[in-house]
């Protein structure tokens, strides 16, 4: 039997670049059921007149002056990288560099 959330689980896994084994999908789909149920409960609340919440902190307009601060030393930045070349991070070739 296939859970109706199976495609959603597979899509989320793909977007998050997670490899999910077929036997895990079924269990995760059931988890999705419970999570989505909880959110469905929220949608039943009457929130008319309540200002949308944009964050958990009661803060606004936190800004800083445009003053330069030291950056990391390059050696330190690059140290954890699996591969480095000429001061660059070297990664497997991505063909379409549009980002």
């Amino acid at each position: 039997m296939t859970n109706e959330n199976t495609p959603a689980v597979q899509k989320c896994a793909a977007l998050a670049r997670l490899q999910v084994e077929p036997e895990q999908v079924e269990r995760l789909a059931e988890d999705f059921d419970r999570i989505l149920d909880a959110f469905r409960g929220l949608t039943e609340l009457d929130v008319s007149g309540v200002k949308p919440m944009t964050g958990a902190l009661d803060l606004q307009d936190i800004v800083r002056a445009d003053e330069p601060r030291p950056s990391l030393e390059r050696e330190r930045l690059l140290a954890p990288a699996p591969k480095v070349e000429d001061g660059f991070f070297a990664v497997p070739k991505t063909v379409d560099g549009d980002a």
């Binding site: 330069p68 601060r69 390059r74």
Partner: peptide, 26 residues
Amino acid sequence: TRTKLFCGCANEFGAEPNTQVCPVCS
């Protein structure tokens, strides 16, 4: 600007690669 949007690293063109990077922007 002189610095990046969310951290104090310099917003300057032409520096040596990966020399204007900090924990926030990386």
